[in-house]
Simulated scan of single mutants.
Amino acid sequence: MLGVFGYELHKCYALTGGPGAMWYEPVSLPKSEIGWAWLEAVTVFYGAVSPNCTNMSDYSRFSKSSKQMYLGITLSIAMTGTLIPIMGMVTASNTLENYGTAMWLPTDVCLQWMMDDYSAGTRAAAFFCGLAFASSQLTFNVLANGFAGGMDLSGIFPRYINIFRGAVITALISWACQPWNFYNTASVFNSVMASFESVTCIL
């Protein structure tokens, strides 16, 4: 993500001297709707980080002190819930200037690279970006979903299910909801995150 963000930002600065026109677009909402927009933004943010917050106890119980727990929670939420979305918005603004289309998905950006220049260096960059994203998704899903689901199922049925079996069951069940469709577009992503908020923000 840092590589894609840095490359697109550098290219946009070389073209326009800034992060792109989208970044400077004024707010066109009437004043009566700005407050509701902020409320929606807060709930969407919490919806995005709420699964990790609810699973945090699976890991924080291994910490030797409360300071370690608080530091881990703060850093993880700050990294995944704040910096990454900002980088995504800046990259979308950059790609609008660089290619004429605002791109939300990193895979679309890598495909655009190869459409513009199908050289060995570009293909290598796209390959390593894809490998990094695939490995990060695999690691994230194993730790955030598989391990947490395995611990929950082993806690409910300790006689029959251990953590490994629970993680496998969680992985098999997850195919039913087709999670790869959650991130196709920014609007779908926001809708998915909003579905978490309808339950977690009330709690």
Rank of each mutant, 00 (worst) to 15 (best):
F157A: 14
N94L: 10
G155H: 08
S119C: 10
G155K: 06
M103H: 00
Q137F: 14
F140D: 15
G88C: 12
V142H: 09
P85A: 08
M87Y: 03
A125I: 07
N98Q: 09
G146T: 03
P85W: 02
T91G: 00
A144W: 01
M89G: 01
F127C: 07
F127G: 04
Y160N: 12
A134I: 11
A92G: 06
L143P: 09
G88R: 02
V90C: 06
R165P: 00
Y118K: 11
L131R: 09
N141T: 13
N162S: 09
I161Y: 01
N162E: 10
R123F: 03
G88E: 04
W104S: 00
T101S: 11
G155M: 05
S136I: 12
V109K: 09
D116K: 13
L138F: 15
D152I: 14
M151F: 01
Q112C: 12
G166Q: 06
N145T: 07
W113M: 05
G146V: 05
T95W: 00
F147D: 15
Q137T: 15
A120P: 00
L131M: 12
V142M: 15
G88P: 03
T139Q: 14
N162I: 09
V168L: 10
A120D: 08
C110E: 09
T91C: 05
S135F: 10
A120G: 07
A132M: 14
N145Q: 15
R165Q: 14
N145I: 10
V168W: 02
L105R: 15
L105Y: 06
A144Y: 05
T101A: 13
F127P: 02
F147G: 06
F164P: 06
Y99D: 00
G130P: 04
